[in-house]
Amino acid sequence: MAEYLIFFNQQWVGDHDEEWFQGRVAPSKAVIADLEAAGELVYAGGLVEELDAAFSADATSGETVVTDGPFVETKEFLGGLTIVDVPDEARARMWGARIAEACGWPQEVRPFKPGSLRT
Rank of each mutant, 00 (worst) to 15 (best):
L117P: 07
G69F: 03
M1Q: 11
S28P: 04
Q22V: 06
G39A: 04
G46F: 00
F112T: 03
V66M: 05
D68P: 05
E108S: 15
K29Y: 05
D15I: 00
F8L: 07
I83P: 02
A44F: 10
D17Y: 02
A90M: 07
S116M: 12
S56W: 00
F7S: 12
R91H: 13
L47P: 00
L117W: 14
E63R: 13
D68S: 06
Q11C: 11
I83V: 14
D34N: 14
G104R: 02
T64H: 08
E3K: 14
G46N: 07
E89Q: 15
A30G: 09
E101M: 08
E50N: 13
R91L: 00
E89W: 13
D15E: 13
R24W: 00
T119A: 14
E73P: 07
P87C: 07
I32Q: 14
F21T: 05
T74H: 04
M1D: 11
P70G: 05
E19S: 08
G45T: 07
E76V: 06
V109C: 14
W12R: 10
D85Y: 10
G115I: 09
E3W: 04
E108Q: 13
N9P: 00
S116G: 11
T82S: 12
E36C: 14
W12D: 14
G115R: 10
V66K: 03
M94H: 15
A92M: 03
V66L: 10
D15R: 02
D17C: 03
M94C: 09
N9G: 09
V66E: 02
A92C: 09
Q107A: 12
G80R: 08
I32H: 15
C103R: 08
A100K: 08
V72F: 11
K75R: 12
L35E: 12
E40I: 10
S28I: 01
T82D: 08
P106C: 07
V84C: 04
E63V: 13
E36A: 15
E50C: 05
D34H: 06
Y43L: 13
